[in-house]
Computed example of a mutant assay.
Amino acid sequence: MNTLAQKIIDAHGGLETWKTFTSLSAHLSQGGALWALKGHADKLNETNVTVGLGDEWASHQPFGADDKVTLLRPDKVEIKDRAGRVLEELDTPRASFIGHTLETPWTEPQLAYFAGIAMWTYLSMPFLLAEPGVVCEQLDDWNENDETWQRLKVTFPKEIATHSTVQTLYVDAEGLLKRHDYDVEIAGDTPGAHYISDYTTVSGIRFPTKRRIFPRQGDGTSLPDPLVVSIDLSAIILS
């Protein structure tokens, strides 16, 4: 494994500990401009998410005021009522975003797809670096806010549904994540700078509980406004 990737994984609790768990759940308090822009203001302001560890799947509940439940897998999205009846489904969901821009509204299954791949990626990182087919390459260091962060370029195989094929992680001297860059392919390749902070330890694994995503400029710097997405996590459980 890439030396920096190993350092990052170890700093977050280590692969051996991570692999003793198969799922993770958390409460999310979310905000930012993206949700209303996509036609779904307040739908996921307060919700719970459960994700698979290794096997890629994610479920949000409640999904809206009527307590619907989502199930995201890379090849299919389902939205169910509280009794488990399927209300909507979308096969090959990635293809449904072809031609989208940042301003294109999303259907409910498209929102469920975005939210699912996003939270699966965030909650599985940095342990995704050890997945088969993931390629890591150390880049030059980055200076921001009087700090120097090491950077890791991550290239994902097509089997993993995530924001973009190529992403960049920024870590501090200890190896903890500070920032995570990607281009949201399903929203017109919109570039984002995702800031990560406020760590807690759960069952030996270190998790950031505060995430703030801002626009990213061509030179790699971020803009202070607008706040695209905010995510505060609590009640994290590994099982």
Rank of each mutant, 00 (worst) to 15 (best):
T50F: 09
E78K: 00
M125G: 01
R212T: 05
L233V: 08
V229G: 09
L90V: 00
G14C: 08
K153H: 12
V77T: 04
E144P: 06
E88V: 00
A95L: 06
Y199H: 14
Y113A: 04
A115C: 03
T190L: 14
R82C: 07
V69R: 15
H60D: 10
T101S: 14
G99K: 00
G204R: 08
L87F: 02
L24N: 10
L169T: 09
P126D: 06
I196R: 07
G192F: 09
A83F: 06
L238V: 00
G64E: 12
W120R: 01
L72D: 12
D183H: 10
S230W: 02
L152I: 05
L53A: 04
A11N: 12
T155G: 08
E89N: 03
T200R: 14
K38P: 07
L90E: 04
I98V: 12
A33C: 12
T104V: 01
I237T: 13
A33I: 02
L28H: 11
G192A: 12
A130K: 08
P224M: 01
T201Y: 09
L15N: 13
G99I: 00
A187I: 05
T47P: 15
H180Y: 15
L111H: 13
D91Y: 06
T168C: 09
I213H: 15
F63R: 14
D81G: 01
L223K: 08
H27G: 04
A11Q: 11
K43M: 10
